[in-house]
């Protein structure tokens, strides 16, 4: 018979709490979503919910709009974030440490609190809440997630590569396009994934910054699920969103790995 100390020292034993946690809070909810998506309110199997989505123009247009907003936000974050990361990582510009801190600082505070504060700020200066405010809020919330990974790859890059490119006849613009940009792509990819995915499924920011006038896909799901008789339809929408996010993250990670030599 095994002694108690043997059981305690076995590595398998230590894994159990985590396995239990994962099953309860990751696997089970996924199974439930799938179950609800393929059943009616009284528990019979159906694909009706899916068919409903493809004929439900409001859901589809909200979905397309959400993806559009997410893409737009990702592009804005990339356009603003790359130069910021580049300047912070480049020793020549002597950016004070304070500046790097200021970019990261908002991440310390819960994004809901920040969004509420933004709403108050807009009200104070008399800026109309709506699409513009929504984009600003999204960008404000997710910009650090774009800057940080790009800053990281740029900072780890060997400075002598830049010198080598210059030595071989590349002017500043060529050094950037031929060396710095390609080498910072892993950071760009993770930045894109880290901004795009949460933006697609966001709903609180949209609610707060548009006075609930603009619905994103996340808000739609929330509406259906809190209205209990349409729980099954809400599950379908969640499942579709999940698949879309899964595809983007797969796109992100494969690109990422190919830069590191494609180990996985």
């Amino acid at each position: 018979m095994k002694k108690l100390s043997d059981i305690a020292s076995s590595r398998h034993t230590w894994a159990w709490p985590y396995i239990l946690f994962l099953v309860l809070f990751v696997v089970l909810p996924l199974v439930l979503i799938a179950f609800y998506a393929f059943t009616t309110a009284d528990g019979r199997f159906t694909v009706q919910n899916f068919l409903k989505f493809f004929t439900h123009s409001e859901a589809i247009s909200t979905f397309v709009y959400s993806v559009f907003i997410a893409v737009l936000n990702t592009v804005i974050c990339l356009l603003l974030g790359y130069p910021a990361a580049y300047i912070m990582a480049n020793e020549d510009y002597r950016t004070p440490k304070v500046m790097a801190m200021l970019f990261i600082l908002p991440m310390w505070i819960n994004f809901l609190l920040r969004t509420v504060a933004t709403v108050e700020l807009f009200n104070m200066i008399g800026f109309k809440l709506g699409e513009g405010a929504l984009l600003f809020g999204l960008c404000y919330d997710y910009l650090p997630f774009m800057i940080y990974p790009i800053y990281n790859t740029l900072q780890k890059m060997d400075r002598s590569l830049v010198e080598a490119a210059g030595d071989l006849g590349a002017n500043r613009a060529k050094v950037f396009t031929k060396v710095i940009l390609p080498l910072s792509m892993p950071g760009v990819y993770s930045g894109i994934v880290m901004v795009f995915m949460p933006t697609v499924s966001t709903f609180a920011i949209a609610e707060l910054l548009t006075h609930n006038n603009i619905k994103l896909f996340g808000s739609l799901i929330q509406d259906y699920i809190t209205t209990s008789d349409l729980l099954n339809y809400g599950a379908v929408l969640s499942l579709i969103l999940l698949v879309i996010i899964g595809i983007t993250s797969f796109f992100g990670s494969t690109e990422d790995d190919s830069q590191k030599g494609g180990l996985i």
Partner: peptide, 11 residues
């Protein structure tokens, strides 16, 4: 220049 740590372009 031939650099001390080669500085080859990894990409």
């Amino acid at each position: 220049t031939v650099f001390q740590k080669y500085a080859l372009f990894p990409h």
